[in-house]
Structures are given as C-alpha cells and as structure tokens.
Design a protein around this nucleic acid. Sequence first.
DNA 1: GCGACAG
DNA 2: ATCTTGTCGC
Length: 198
Amino acid sequence: MVGPGPTAPTTVAGLDVAYAEDGDRLAAAVTVLDVRTLRVVDSAVVTGRPAFDYVPGLFAFRELPALLDALDRLTNPPDLLVCDGHGLAHPRRFGLACHLGVLTGLPAIGVGKTPLVGTWDPPGERRGSWSPLVDGTEVVGRVLRTQDGVKPVFVSVGHRMGLENACALVLALAPSYRLPETTRTADRLCRAALAGRT
DNA sequence: GCGACAG
DNA sequence: ATCTTGTCGC
C-alpha cells in the first residue's frame, strides 16, 4: 500500500488554456486547491504557441505540451487533476483527461461543458441530479447538474478514479457555480496571463 | 459518401 | 477557444 489513496484527495488541480484572438499564442494554467476549503494553495502558468491546430478528437495534442509544462512548475504535485475537456467520453475513449492522467501518473477526471460523443436523457433540474452518458453500448460518463436549473456538465473518468467518485468530487468542487472552482480559478489565471499582468 | 465534432 | 448587446435577477 502506498499513500492515502485516490478516493481521499487533499489537493486537487484545475487545468485550463486560453487563446489569443488570432490563435498564435496561448496561456496554460494550473491552480491547486485545498479540496476542503477550496482555497488556491499553489499555481503555475506558462505562455506559448499551440502545438497543433484544433481538431476535434485530437484536442489533447494541442494543449498537452503547455499543460505539462505548467504542471512541472508547481511547488508540489496535487493529488488529482480536474481537466477542462473529456476523459473516457471520447471517440477513441481517450480524451485529454486520460492523456494527462497517464503522463503524470495522477488520478484525473474530465469535466466538459459540451458533449463530444454520446446520448443522454435530461437529468433532473436539481443540483446533484444526473443521467448516464451513453455511446453505443457503453456508459462513458455522466451528465451532471451542478446547480439547480443550470445547464449540466459532462463528467467522465480520466485515470485511476471511478465515475461515482468523480461526480461526487465535482459536486464538492462546485458549491456555488456551474463549473468546479478548479476550472474557474485556472480559467481566470490563464486569461490574466494572456492579457499581460501576472 | 457526408456531416458532426471537447477547447 | 474567441467575437459580441442587452437583459434578467440577486
């Protein structure tokens, strides 16, 4: 046995990337939050150029280099990664969250704002309601309502964590807004870096 | 074959 | 992703 285990993360990282208007420049940010207080305890941001043009399904290859770069600059590694995009809910069952999980060895989950694959029934209107995201015969994720009456998010497993725990974590990370605090803080950081002031 | 398609 | 006005609501 090694460590506290993937189901009891103390720190969770949010990752996000922002692009300049012309698309020739990007900023990748990672914010590390204390899962209990939801406070940012560490962060890193790097600027660079996109490695590829955007192609649905190959999205990971575009943002991966910059995100790994940012992760390397953290003072200490987080217990888990919350990615802006999908994990298993991908045409080849291997989205950005899977790439990041495997490459870092850390547990990882994907939280997408829009679907890439799959069909689903509308979840209940209340926070916490969900319905399975199905692609073919496989359940590849869950459509989860994080706030009453708001558009649901698409949660899927990336690496070393089950779907049930992933959804519970996302709800814990989203007490007030549609998106988890991890992606919200990372989003603000990379946008600020792109704008200049840091 | 054609269209759709995370960010 | 980014570009965008006003509008509704706490």
